[in-house]
């Protein structure tokens, strides 16, 4: 689905990613763990196309296309979804209007007719149940006045609505209590299929009790330094990141 090869990237002249390699296939869940400042969120931002970063070397192939050549919205229309660590508030723009615009732009891109209002509302009802999102939140402005947990649930709700091929969850667990975490993870698990894939970026192992990864990668100093099965996450939890730092720094 996505193949990242030797990815180097800078921000303000400072190298953050230093030759990162990763391949994710359909039907897989990959977890990327690592200490603060390892470059986890940078990876998510670069894949989504944030302009602050400069890719200096390497390649990213997404569904056979050169991802780095696509505009941010084209990447999204091709099926890449980023669940933001800090979802942005957009005052005055209702969630419904926002999602319908997004959905219809995607459909237009793929040569499909816009979704009917009825069909759309049915979809909203169905998908909002998935993350136990209060239907009232759907008519409120995007993320405005949402609690931390509501914002994260709203991200997963949007993911459900847009049906991406590859979802990147950037620290989706940060700031969530155990109930909210369970709901969010439940939503992600329900959306999992043999045709899509998920990259879970997290600092803590806790989330991985709920979203069980097929592979765990340790990102440190701009590179993936260790990969393994889900048990690797438990090992990291137990030993902490100092162990990694000592071994690879």
């Amino acid at each position: 689905m996505i193949k990242i090869e030797n990815l180097h990237a800078n921000i303000d002249g400072k190298e953050i990613l230093k030759g990162l390699n990763l391949e994710v296939n359909a039907g897989e869940v990959h977890a990327i763990m690592g200490p603060n400042g390892a470059g986890k969120s940078t990876l998510a931002s670069i894949l989504a196309g944030k302009e602050d970063y400069e890719v200096t070397a390497g390649s990213v192939t997404f569904e056979g296309k050169n991802l780095l050549e696509l505009e941010t919205d084209e990447r999204a229309k091709e099926g890449l979804f980023l669940a933001f660590q800090y979802p942005v508030e957009i005052p005055g723009v209702s969630n419904i209007n926002f999602l319908r615009t997004a959905l219809n732009e995607k459909r237009e891109y793929h040569g499909q007719e816009p979704i009917s209002a009825k069909e759309f509302m049915e979809m909203v009802r169905e998908k909002s149940k998935l993350v136990e999102l209060d239907p009232k939140l759907a008519s409120r402005s995007v993320n405005e006045g949402f609690s931390g947990g509501e914002k994260k649930r709203n991200e997963i709700f949007q993911m459900a609505m847009l049906e991406p091929k590859l979802s990147i969850l950037d620290e989706t667990d940060s700031g969530l209590d155990i109930d909210a975490l369970r709901i969010v993870a439940g939503g992600v698990n329900a959306l999992k299929s043999k045709d899509n894939a998920t990259i879970v970026i997290t600092h803590y192992q806790r989330l991985l009790d709920y979203i069980v990864p097929d592979f765990v990668h340790v990102l440190f100093d701009g590179k993936i330094v260790k990969s393994g099965p889900k048990e690797l996450a438990l090992e990291l939890e137990e030993k902490g990141y100092d162990w990694i730092k000592a071994e690879f720094a």
């Binding site: 989504a48 919205d73 999204a76 979804f81 933001f84 957009i90 926002f98 997004a102 732009e105 891109y109």
Partner: peptide, 17 residues
């Protein structure tokens, strides 16, 4: 950027905002 990431074009994003 948030709008773009959801597949909404720049022009529509500005109009929405």
């Amino acid at each position: 950027f948030y709008c773009l990431q959801r597949g909404i074009s720049e022009e529509k994003a500005i109009s929405l905002i």
